[in-house]
Write a protein that binds this DNA or RNA. Structure first.
Lengths: 204, 204
DNA sequence: TCGCATTTGTGCTCACATTCACAAAGTTAC
DNA sequence: GTAACTTTGTGAATGTGAGCACAAATGCGA
C-alpha cells in the first residue's frame, strides 16, 4: 500500500489489536485470521485488514496473521516495545485505583512515580511507590518520564497540565472532567466517566 | 430543520454542553453565544449550532442561547431531568473511587446500590451505601435501577453483564478492559484506561 | 424608523472512515 | 500438478460527520 497518513481511528484501534494478540500469544495460538480476530473484538474483518495494512503487509494469504510477530510489530509501531514510564498525578481514591490497575502491564507501562499536593500524603506509600510532592514533578524529564496520568479534581487539572508540559511531558491521560489546553506537540487523551454515563439514559 | 437521525457524535457531545451550561447557570450568566461556548469547550461554533439545532431551535438570533432553558432542554433530551439511579458493580479500589466520584451529580446520577462478590466485603459500608452480594443484582428492576457501572476484572465482566441484562438493565458503563456482548436493546459504553494510554507513545 | 452589528439555523461541500468486492497469493487434498 | 479453498491486501464505493458561507432574525443606537 502506498504511503498515506494513518487515520486517527486506526491508531486508536491498534492497542485493541495488541491486547487481543498478546492474549493469543499466551494461549499459544500460532496464527489468527482477520475473521477470527473480528469476532473476538466485535469488528468487521475488512476493517482489521485495512488497519493493519496501513503499517505494511504482515499477514500470510490463505493463513492469516502470525500472532507473535504481528504483536511485536504493533508494539514497535506504538513504541510499546520499550518499557514506558508513567507519572501518576493524584493519590486520592482514583489515583490509588489507577496505581493498582492491572491493565497497564500488557502494554508495558510502568507507573514510575506518584505525586500529590497534600502534605499529609507525601512520604506515604502506595504499593511500592512513595508519594512525592508536586514540586518534584518539575524533575520528570531527568527521570525520563514523558507520560502522565492526571487523576485530580477538575479545578486543579489545567494548572497541573501546564506544569507537566513544562516538565517535558509529551502525552497526558486526563481523567478529570475538563478540557486541557496544551501546546499541539503534546497529546492529550481524556476519559470522562460522567460524560460517558451521561449519554446512556438517552438510549434507554 | 427537517427530521433526521441524530448523529451519535452529536449525542456524545450533549453531556459536554450540559456540563458547561450547568456551570454557567451557577455563575449566573443569562445567555451564551455559540462562539463563547466553543471557546470554552475547544470546539468550533458551527458544530455547536448544528448539534443543538438537531433538537430544535433554542437560541435567539443576535443574542445566543438562554443558559437556564437550554440546560433544561438538554436535560430533557438526555432524560437527565429525572434523577437516574445507578448500580455499581465492584467494590474494589476502582469501585470505591467511582462511588466517591463527585462528577456524576451534575448530571443527576445517583449511585443507589453497590455490589461485590467477595463475602468479606458484603455488609460493609462504602460511603452511605451497604455493599450487597451479587445475588441481589437480580432484583434491580424492582428497585427501578436500569443503569450500571461495571468496575470488576475483565474475566468476570461478561458474565456480570449478562446478569445485569437479565435483571433489566438498559445501559452499562463498562470500566473493564474487554468487549461486552449484549443484546442490541442494551447500550454499552466502555472506558478503557490502558487502551487510551496505549496510543500516547505513538504520538510522542 | 433605518441602518449596522450580532448571532442563529442550515444547505452544501469537503474530508474522513467504513465497507464492499475482487485480484493476488498462499494452502490443502488427491 | 492441479483444482478447490482460504485469506490477505487494496482500489473503489458508500456512509458519516465537520465546517463554511450565507440568509434570516434580532438588538441597538442615532
Amino acid at each position: 500500500m502506498k504511503y498515506r497518513k494513518i487515520p486517527d481511528e486506526t491508531v486508536r484501534r491498534m492497542p485493541m489489536y495488541l491486547r487481543a494478540l498478546s492474549l493469543l500469544e499466551q494461549e499459544g495460538q500460532q496464527t489468527i485470521s482477520s475473521r477470527q480476530l473480528a469476532d473476538r473484538l466485535h469488528l468487521k474483518p475488512p476493517q482489521i485488514r485495512k488497519d493493519l495494512s496501513y503499517f505494511g503487509a504482515f499477514g500470510t494469504r490463505g493463513i492469516g496473521y502470525p500472532v507473535v510477530s504481528a504483536a511485536q510489530q504493533i508494539r514497535t509501531i506504538l513504541r510499546l516495545d520499550v518499557r514506558q514510564k508513567v507519572a501518576l498525578i493524584g493519590a486520592g481514591r482514583l489515583g490509588t485505583a489507577v496505581a493498582a490497575y492491572p491493565g497497564f502491564s500488557v502494554f508495558g507501562f510502568d507507573i514510575a512515580a506518584v505525586f500529590d499536593k497534600s502534605p499529609a500524603k507525601i512520604g506515604k506509600k502506595i504499593g511500592r511507590l512513595v508519594i512525592e510532592d508536586m514540586q518534584s514533578v518539575d524533575a520528570l524529564e531527568a527521570r525520563q518520564i514523558r507520560l502522565a496520568i492526571v487523576a485530580i479534581p477538575a479545578e486543579e487539572a489545567q494548572a497541573c497540565a501546564e506544569r507537566l508540559v513544562r516538565a517535558g511531558v509529551k502525552g497526558i491521560l486526563n481523567l478529570a472532567p475538563c478540557y486541557l489546553a496544551v501546546p499541539k506537540r503534546v497529546k492529550v487523551v481524556s476519559l470522562d466517566m460522567a460524560m460517558a454515563l451521561g449519554v446512556l439514559p438517552y438510549y434507554m
